[in-house]
């Protein structure tokens, strides 16, 4: 009896904490969606109102028309797709080399790569910008894609996963006439599809959300990306927050859809720490 009551209290506490956590996470989202439907007066009201007086989609149409979002979307897609493909290629090949192959200087190289993670990204922005200018790549897609084609973090992450795959699998494949590259394609990648999916998603999100770098290296309207769409509602006369919120919704929706589709793999990738042989 007592024990049962204790269990109930424990459960209430447990779920209470989880609900509060979920609310904290969801609140900004909810706020964004609700604000996107408010009028300018409502959004500026003090004290703030939580719900808009009427749920209208007017802000979305206004925001969509205010900037060439279609063009921005295409640009963002181009940058995201090509960068992600590139990142996957470099990450998988490098991780395989570090985890599986033996070559002189392997340890030193990995240490050097890891050391580069200590460099603050703001510093990279400047040097990369100078490089882009010298290459005359300003206002091109490659300026947005190429500098971020390799990520030490992803390489390190995937190396750890690759290194967990037992040697015997590699040797067995060798006897079965499956050389390094084929082994990578046919065995390593399928076995590690969880972590690879996770890396893909992380990279897509970071491309999707990246703001400072595309802003720096593009000038013309035709080359701008989605995240830039948000800035133009901030003018000298003030910010049209309801439009920013509507635009933010537009920005986030594709990512949300992707997440829903790939949820299974994301969770697998995060939880899959030990792979059984």
């Amino acid at each position: 009896m007592n024990r049962k009551a204790g269990n109930v209290i424990a459960n209430i506490l447990k779920y209470g904490v989880l609900i509060i956590g979920a609310l904290f996470t969801l609140m900004p989202f909810l706020w964004m969606i609700l604000s996107a439907m408010k009028t300018n007066a409502e959004i500026r009201a003090i004290p703030p109102v939580f719900f808009p007086s009427k749920f209208s989609l007017e802000n979305f149409t206004t925001a969509w028309k205010a900037a060439p979002f279609g063009r921005y979307l295409v640009n963002t897609l181009i940058v995201t797709v090509f960068n992600t493909i590139g990142v996957l290629i470099t990450t998988i090949l490098a991780a395989f080399a570090f985890a599986r192959l033996n070559f002189p200087g392997k340890k030193v190289l990995l240490t050097l790569l890891l050391a580069t993670m200590m460099i603050p990204s703001e510093m990279l922005l400047i040097t990369n910008f100078i490089t882009m200018t010298k290459l005359k790549w300003i206002d091109t897609y490659q300026a947005m894609i190429v500098p971020w084609l390799a990520s030490v973090f992803y390489i390190y992450l995937l190396t750890q996963f690759f290194a967990q795959i037992p040697d015997a699998l590699y040797l067995a494949a060798k006897v079965d006439k499956c050389r390094d590259f084929k082994y990578l394609i046919k065995i390593m990648i399928p076995i590690n599809k969880g972590p690879i999916t996770t890396i893909t998603i992380l990279n897509v999100i970071s491309n999707w959300n990246s703001f400072v770098w595309p802003l720096l290296v593009t000038n013309s309207r035709e080359m701008r990306v989605l995240s830039y769409g948000l800035v133009q509602f901030q003018t000298e006369e003030g910010s049209a927050y309801e439009l920013i919120m509507a635009a933010s919704c537009i920005l986030v929706i594709p990512i949300m859809i992707m997440y829903l589709f790939l949820r299974k793999y994301i969770i697998e990738g995060v939880t899959q720490s030990g792979i059984k042989g």
Partner: peptide, 14 residues
Amino acid sequence: GIGLVFQNYALYPH
């Protein structure tokens, strides 16, 4: 022309 069997079998899990 050899067949090899490992201690932990080394089957391809996928």
